[in-house]
């Protein structure tokens, strides 16, 4: 494998994405989530190829996160954001 831009090569968990930077969802580890949580995330539109952008962080322990997904802003906890892998440069 040739070394291209590292950001495109390695998927990053969404909770490590900086506030204000946009990324594309590379994949979601649905097995790491409970059924209701996975279902709700799908309902919010978290899906491969969708653009996401963390907008705000909670005041305590920088948790939860407010994430823009599509035209919607949703609040999720960091533990759940960890299951969403993104690639930069969307």
């Amino acid at each position: 494998m040739t070394v291209a831009t590292p950001s495109a090569q390695f998927a990053l968990p969404l909770d490590q994405l900086r506030v204000g930077s946009r990324a594309r969802i590379h994949g979601v580890d649905w097995s790491a989530l409970e059924e209701g949580e996975a279902c709700r995330l799908k309902h919010f539109g978290f899906d491969e190829g969708v653009t996401v952008e963390p907008l705000h962080q909670g005041p305590f322990g920088r948790d939860p996160l407010a994430v823009r997904v599509g035209r919607m802003t949703v609040a999720i906890r960091r533990t759940h954001a960890r299951a969403i892998k993104v690639t930069l440069g969307a």
Binding site: E34, G36, E37, R40, P64, V74, A75, R77, H80
Partner: peptide, 10 residues
């Protein structure tokens, strides 16, 4: 049950 749940639309 499932750990407390916090996923909502703003």
């Amino acid at each position: 049950g499932a750990s407390s749940f916090f996923m909502m639309e703003l």
